[in-house]
């Protein structure tokens, strides 16, 4: 492997945030390939050649049956070995919006309960889910997010970040509420919806009714991140919905740091 950070942005029928996600990584110097899942299935392209896997937003397969399910099954039944190896190799995965739904439904998130680094193991069955918003409809709105956990992806983010959500099925639920304690103890909760001051939110600050206001989680290692809000949509300063009121400190928005972190991690740990 040469000294380039290589990112694979996975796409399939109904993926639609692939180009802005690719732009975000390439802006920080990564080499980004937009790859249709068919190319992986046919082994024309190998997952192992990449450092970061991004599963972008969209409506894969129309979110038919339920969001992310069909792509998740494709990954589970046809690419699980490659994915397990990818995680074992301490590479990074990010799933945004539909990508988060996919990661949850494969079991990659929240992943194994404790980090076992010795051997490759299969992903556990699905233990959390993202279901229909309490409001009953798709909503595009900006949310304040309290940043928590110890993920490499969220390093040096402001304590309260501001990203938009745009989804119909983003309500975070758990099979077993005791899991919440475990996620918390492991530092796996990366983002919680909050008010502008960081307090407990009501609707619409918590836009979907997520349990414990959870907006994004990681696996125990922090290297696999999934979140409903879209950091790539607050990549630039002018993405902020009120940018015309603000003094411009930087040309970046809150979300840029996430992609920079991913590239930084690979440069410092994998190359």
């Amino acid at each position: 492997m040469n000294k380039t950070v290589k990112v694979i942005v996975l796409r399939t029928a109904g993926t639609n945030c692939d180009q802005e996600t690719a732009f975000a990584f390439s802006h920080f110097g990564a080499q980004v390939d937009l790859v249709h899942i068919n190319a992986l299935l046919r082994k024309e392209i190998k997952l192992e050649d990449y450092h970061i896997l991004a599963v972008p937003g969209g409506f894969t397969y129309g979110d038919d049956i339920e969001s992310g399910r069909i792509l998740a099954n494709e990954l589970r039944f046809h690419l699980s070995t490659d994915l397990e190896q990818f995680v074992y190799d301490k590479k990074l995965i990010i799933g945004i919006c539909n990508g988060f739904q996919v990661l949850v439904k494969t079991g990659i998130l929240p992943g194994k309960t404790s980090e076992d680094e010795k051997e490759i193991s299969t992903f556990p069955p699905q233990t959390v889910s993202l279901i229909g918003n309490d409001s009953g409809k798709f909503e595009d709105r900006w949310t304040y997010l309290k940043v928590d956990g110890h993920s490499v992806w969220t390093r040096d983010l402001p304590s309260i970040a501001y990203f938009p959500v745009a989804h119909a099925e983003g309500k975070f639920v758990l099979a077993d509420k005791k899991q919440l304690q475990v996620l918390g103890d492991n530092g796996q909760v990366a983002f919680r919806y909050c008010t502008v001051n960081g307090r407990n939110p009501f609707y619409p600050q918590n836009p979907n009714g997520s349990f414990d206001h959870i907006a994004g989680i990681t696996d125990p290692s922090g290297r696999v991140l999934g979140l409903m809000p879209h950091p790539e949509r607050h990549f630039l300063f002018r993405h902020h919905p009120s940018w015309t009121r603000l003094k411009k400190q930087s040309s970046y928005g809150d979300g840029a740091k996430i992609f920079a972190n991913g590239v930084w991690y690979v440069e410092n740990h994998l190359l």
């Binding site: 639609n16 945030c17 180009q19 802005e20 732009f23 937003g57 409809k137 798709f138 909503e139 595009d140 709105r141 900006w142 938009p164 745009a166 879209h230 790539e232 949509r233 990549f235 002018r238 993405h239 919905p241 009120s242 015309t244 009121r245």
Partner: peptide
């Protein structure tokens, strides 16, 4: 308007809603 995704593709500069509370 909230039911429409008005920001996908990452190009939005002036959105359908603006102001202090967007």
């Amino acid at each position: 308007v909230r039911q429409y995704d008005h920001e996908v593709q990452g190009g939005s500069v002036i959105k359908p809603f603006c102001g202090v509370d967007a």
